[in-house]
Nucleic acid binder design. Sequence first.
DNA 1: GTCTATAGCAGGATAGAC
DNA 2: GTCTATCCTGCTATAGAC
Lengths: 219, 219
Amino acid sequence: MTNPSTDNTRDRLLIQAEQLFAQKGFAAVSVREITAAADSNLAAINYHFGNKMNLYLSVFKERWVPRADGVRKFFRKYLSEKNDPDTADMVRAIATAFLVGSMTDNERQCHINLMLRELAHPTEAVNIVVEEVIRPMHIAVRELIRPSLPENICLEQLTLSIFSIISMIVYFGFAQPVVSRVMNQEFDPQFKSRVIDHIVSFAMNGINGIKNRTEEETV
Amino acid sequence: MTNPSTDNTRDRLLIQAEQLFAQKGFAAVSVREITAAADSNLAAINYHFGNKMNLYLSVFKERWVPRADGVRKFFRKYLSEKNDPDTADMVRAIATAFLVGSMTDNERQCHINLMLRELAHPTEAVNIVVEEVIRPMHIAVRELIRPSLPENICLEQLTLSIFSIISMIVYFGFAQPVVSRVMNQEFDPQFKSRVIDHIVSFAMNGINGIKNRTEEETV
DNA sequence: GTCTATAGCAGGATAGAC
DNA sequence: GTCTATCCTGCTATAGAC
């Protein structure tokens, strides 16, 4: 809910707008609902952001991108604490950064929902999502993993593997209610930790499969 | 219930409603937009479905579930054409059924969007999605794969693996525009076929990883 | 079953006082 | 910067003619 220490109306609007847009989508949320949640006046959105759409874009620029940066920082810090990290360390670093570190469960839900909504029905914000976060992250992960693989590794296979790893991480972040429901298993920290172990193991075997196939093919 | 085959308007409404709800979400679509797209009268939705929400639910009952059934049929047919199918055949069958067979690209986009929207912000329809499709599919896949694994396989590991496989398939179905954009690679049939090969290979190595770990642990 | 007309209301946006 | 009052558009839903 509203943080009392956030006496800045503009910030409160951004925080509540992000939450509501993520939950319900742009069209389903009214400016009345946002301003009420932010404990501010009906006219505040138009004063601070011009209109509703610009508030939506500001949510991506000022909240979504910084949070993605937070994930990247956690990832780098996690890796920097390892001596000579191998590929498994890297996969664990990504999964942990996204599923445990740097975000509360609510923030993660929020973050993923906003992204998926934007991919399902792109607005202007999709360019921010893809160009400022998804693409740089992909390139960074690829270049981190590549040195540990054979030099003549098929780049397409590697990139598809990274997409696969990301798909697992995003899915287990997004579909927690479904996973819980189907497995009849609460998503508590212990289970989450087993899920991360699973992702790392599954992904490592997948990547090693590429490595092995490439070696076979090039012999 | 009225006989759908004699009632064109009702079917046209369902078809157009599904398309628009999938693209934009429930709130962002007006009944005016749907009735215009279905080339019918503004009052038609209320006549045939009572109200807008009931049209939305009918989309899931009469279009979404049947299409999921179509995927399952394709999957079974694909498998029945193999003699003594192994786990890789099953993974390929699922991926192919979902990413190639039984749906056009547009229908797949539609199908996934509706599901993800419902998971992101559940309405009454989420029960249809989970109980009539996701859970039965999980159980079916699990029981198909299990016989080919060691008897004392950790059931949690197997279920998580199935979620991982599904996450890849859904992701490559949903995020085609992003994958194309990041890889600078059109999603043509050749590439799609390589993606399926990748999913099968990645998943098989992942599953074999479980198998091996279980064997080690039980020795 | 289909259509027109309209009731009744909620939405975004703005003007202008403070 | 904040607030009230208000405009006007667009929405869902319905009544009633055909």
